[in-house]
Design a protein around this nucleic acid. Structure first.
Length: 819
RNA sequence: GCCGGGGUGGCGGAAUGGUAGACGCGCACGACUCAAAAUCGUGUAAGGUUACACUUGUGGAGGUUCAAGUCCUCUCCCCGGCACCA
């Protein structure tokens, strides 16, 4: 290597003046040019294989793009650029999930118009996306708060309504009695008071719109098999849907023998051990079950329970509270009378839910029974040893002790009990999933396309009258006991589209999850005025090949989008029934102090400021280098500076490009670049961007060791670097005399890198004691390997005996000699 | 409480069951400089040694295996979600 320092070298680019790396100038130049040239716009009529890379589109908040956004968006951007270079037709769009509560809250606080605020925020977000070098097809930009978009949100509602999948029912909502408004869970402080007014929040029963997602429960479970999604996300959805096979058993009220409580159980034999039943405070029969002398006490208890958030009620699970209603139901198997309790720890929206208390064989029921001095019955005893009656018997084995079933096993007794109950028991499948509540008592959302006659008959607004424009003549977005839209006279009263007279509009708006449950379809044909999107275009681009976004959407957006896709499939609008083929989550980027980034901690990193100071290439490389995409990782400015050093060294690589290398160097140079191409290709395919960055670094270290690089290798290096660091790659590509744009070039091919030597690990008694270098072209036998290992100088001191108990030889890996 | 995911140097992290700590940061020393910054070079898990040798080591306790960060059981700790935030 030293010899090359002494020979005169001709540099390829010596004539050009050495120039300083001015990231800001370079990046601004290319950013503008790419945008002007529509470089990243996709062609609907291309014959190439398609690739749809999608980000969870951002909510354009006032605080601008977050480094967390940049992390996920960089990952899809890298993949898009990589696939484009591999010859695919790539769709990588961006849009704005623009309706929502924070903007509305800010509008109330500042007295400004949400529409205006949203426009400003979108402008900021877009310029930030451009600044960090995202290769987006901006001709497809969409905004869920624009009438052109929400026309289709409303259309979707009508389609579900037509199919009977949208319906109204009463449900409990969080109510602020001072502000006279419905509250989101996040607007309630941990102590149960409203964030804004300080009022004690209560539950209020109101009419709400729902989508019948429960009708799709089974398909939403089984179709997960088709998807390349993280196992944890699939599990999350399965648990959320919560399918379980069991039995419904009806318990008649003792007083009238006509009113029934329906209990669900997977273990009907536990009827033998049941000593009480519990209903939720929301249960629709609470009043009927409450006796007069208990009324005050129960009413007070229910009032307190409903003032608590569900999370609070669940947290209280250690101390289980409950009150006796005074009524009894009859156990249909034993004819015993069981007291009916109300407990806030029964969490459910389902007005029918009833729990059968089995204190002898359930931990929670045991403590509930102890607290309320209820009977504790044991019906099972261990097959060996004695029963300990100071605690519940929880094992799932043993013998039944109850009369009529004595000595039988759990399984035997279950079969007999089901038979004995006859038509008083029926097998049912229960689900935890509830229907999707889609109406909101808010202004900043898509109006629901329904009106009512004076007789309160629902009138769906005809499709031709869409979009129903969100009125702008609202003085105060704050609801005063009614949804904000009801303040607009011109909005509320319209002529009956199907007859004479006037009808009154539904003043509620749609949950923003409805907006985002089909936006990926709109990206396929974003300017279509006649349809949500053309069938052929949707079927060309969908399903999404790579979807990246946070794991917090597991049981929300991701489930809703799958549901809506299936509904549209069933109606024949599309020929696919799953929207996202491959899904990956990005982990959150924590602050430098390892805490969640927040104004409160003053640890927020702004990506545009980083791009300004260090360059977007450094920002992107650093965010990818921090660690695996899916993991939560803390920000480190020192780490960023390290990556920035790497970028500066890349800039200087151009000085090392020489016309002719010595044979030795050339061979090594080619070997290195081929190995880099292979590794980066494989890392990109597996989404291991952190490892790709480390390979670039290793390669650069190698170039600096060699002292030179051929023009060919340098070009290839720039090509594999381009997806991660698009600006510097484009600039250097131009400087070495190549044609614009590097991002439209082919991914470099590589020849297989052959290793001349195989390094075998030599272990003695399982401990590593050295290595054995073998010529890879020779096929050694096991005996020869053992001989070679034995004769290694540095191993002689461990091999003091000629006798081995055993030798394990794994070709190309290890030889382990057991003495 | 229920569900899901994690614990590897001073730090971020790497490791198809086969040499733990790649790559980067930080730190130390050296070169350049009047000096500093920047840059470049060398070293860097802990204990041990002038240096080697050697020993220990992936939250903790067991287990499977010739071989465990990796597989199994139990346990402790941290993070995320829990239906009107998006």
């Amino acid at each position: 290597m030293d010899n090359i320092k002494n020979i005169k070298v001709t540099r390829e680019f010596e004539s050009k003046q050495k120039q300083e790396y001015l990231h800001d100038k370079i990046e601004t130049k290319w950013m503008n040019r790419w945008y002007k040239d529509n470089l990243y716009c996709s062609n609907d009529s291309s014959n190439k294989q398609k690739y749809f890379a999608l980000d969870m589109f951002p909510y354009p908040s006032g605080s601008g793009l977050h480094v967390g956004h940049v992390e996920g968006y960089s990952a899809t951007d890298i993949q898009s650029r990589f696939k484009r270079m591999q010859g695919l037709e790539v769709l990588h769009p961006m849009g704005w999930d623009a309706f929502g509560l924070p903007t509305e809250n800010f509008a109330i606080k500042s007295g400004r118009n949400p529409n205006e605020l949203t426009g400003e925020n979108i402008a900021t977000f877009k310029s930030q996306c451009l600044r960090v070098g995202l290769g987006i097809d901006w001709k497809r930009e969409i905004n869920t708060s624009s009438p052109e978009y929400y026309k289709w949100t409303q259309w979707l509602f009508l389609k579900l309504y037509e199919k009977g999948l949208a319906y109204k029912k009463k449900s409990y909502v969080n109510w602020d009695p001072i502000d006279q408004t419905v509250l989101a869970n996040e607007q309630i402080l941990p102590d149960g008071t409203a964030e804004r007014s300080g009022a004690k929040v209560v539950k209020k029963e109101m009419e709400q719109w729902y989508f019948k997602i429960t009708e799709y429960s089974d398909r939403l479970i089984t179709d997960l098999d088709k998807l390349d999604w993280p196992e944890s996300t699939k599990k999350g959805q399965i648990n959320w849907i919560g399918r379980s096979e069991g039995y419904q058993i009806d318990f008649p009220l003792l007083a009238d023998k006509k009113t029934y409580l329906h209990i669900f159980t997977k273990t009907p034999e536990m009827l033998l051990a049941s000593t009480y039943v519990v209903i939720a405070p929301e249960h629709h029969l609470v009043d009927k079950f409450t006796l007069k002398d208990k009324k005050n006490e129960i009413d007070e208890y229910i009032k307190n329970s409903l003032a608590k958030t569900d999370t609070e009620r669940m947290k209280g699970n250690k101390i289980i509270s409950g009150i006796f209603t005074g009524s009894y139901v009859v156990n249909p198997l034993t004819s015993e009378q069981l007291p009916v309790y109300v407990s806030e720890n029964v969490i459910t929206d389902d007005v029918n839910n009833t729990i059968m208390g089995v204190p002898g064989h359930n931990k929670r029921d045991f403590s509930f029974a102890k607290r309320n001095n209820l009977n504790i019955t044991y019906i099972l005893k261990p097959s060996e040893g004695t029963l300990d009656t100071t605690k519940p018997y929880l094992k799932n084995e043993g013998l039944i002790m109850s009369s009529g079933y004595e000595g039988s096993s759990i399984e035997e007794s279950r079969i007999k009990i089901i038979k004995d109950l006859g038509n008083r028991i029926k097998p049912i499948t229960s689900y935890k999933l509830k229907d999707w509540l889609v109406s909101r008592e808010r202004y900043w959302g898509a109006p629901i396309p329904i009106a009512y006659t004076s007789d309160n008959v629902e009138i769906p607004i005809p499709e031709k009258d869409l979009p129903i424009i969100l009125p702008s003549d609202i003085a105060d977005y704050r609801p005063k006991g009614k949804a904000p839209l009801s303040q607009s006279e011109s909005f509320m009263q319209i002529p009956n589209p199907f007859g004479s007279g006037e009808v009154t509009r539904e003043p509620k708006t749609l949950d923003t999850f409805v907006d985002s449950s089909f936006y990926f379809l709109r990206f396929c044909d974003p300017n279509n005025n006649g349809e949500l999107a053309g069938k052929a275009k949707m079927e060309k681009w969908m399903p999404v090949d790579l979807y990246i976004g946070g794991a917090e959407h597991t049981v929300g957006h991701l489930l809703y989008s799958r549901f809506i896709t299936k509904v549209l499939y069933d109606m024949g609008y599309i020929n696919f029934d799953e929207p996202f083929k491959k899904l990956r989550h990005q982990g959150i980027v924590l602050g430098e102090d390892h805490r969640k980034m927040s104004k409160r901690w003053g640890n927020v990193i702004r990506p545009d400021q980083i791009a300004e100071k260090y360059g977007a290439d450094s920002l992107r490389l650093y965010e990818m280098f921090m660690g695996p995409l899916e993991q939560a990782k803390p920000w480190s400015t020192d780490g960023l500076i390290g990556v920035n050093r790497f970028v500066n060294r890349v800039w200087k690589m151009i000085d090392k490009v020489i016309v002719s290398q010595t044979e030795d160097i050339l061979i090594q140079d080619e070997k290195n670049i081929n190995s880099l191409i292979n590794k980066v290709t494989s890392h990109f395919e597996q989404g291991k961007y952190n490892l790709a960055v480390s390979e670039y670094m290793k390669y650069l270290n190698g170039v600096e060791k060699l002292g030179s690089i051929s023009k060919d290798s340098f070009e290839k290096f720039l090509l594999v670097l381009a997806p991660l660091a698009p600006f510097i790659a484009e600039e250097l590509w131009e400087r070495i005399g190549n044609e614009y744009s590097i991002h439209l070039q082919n991914w470099p091919s590589s020849s297989e890198v052959k290793e001349e030597t195989i390094v075998l690990s030599v272990q003695i008694n399982g401990k590593f004691r050295g290595t054995l270098k073998l010529d890879s072209s020779i096929d050694f036998s096991e005996e020869e390997i053992i001989d070679l290992a034995k004769t290694q100088q540095d191993l002689s001191k461990y091999l003091h005996t000629e006798k081995y108990k055993k030798i394990i030889y794994i070709p190309k890996k290890v030889i382990n000699i057991i003495l």
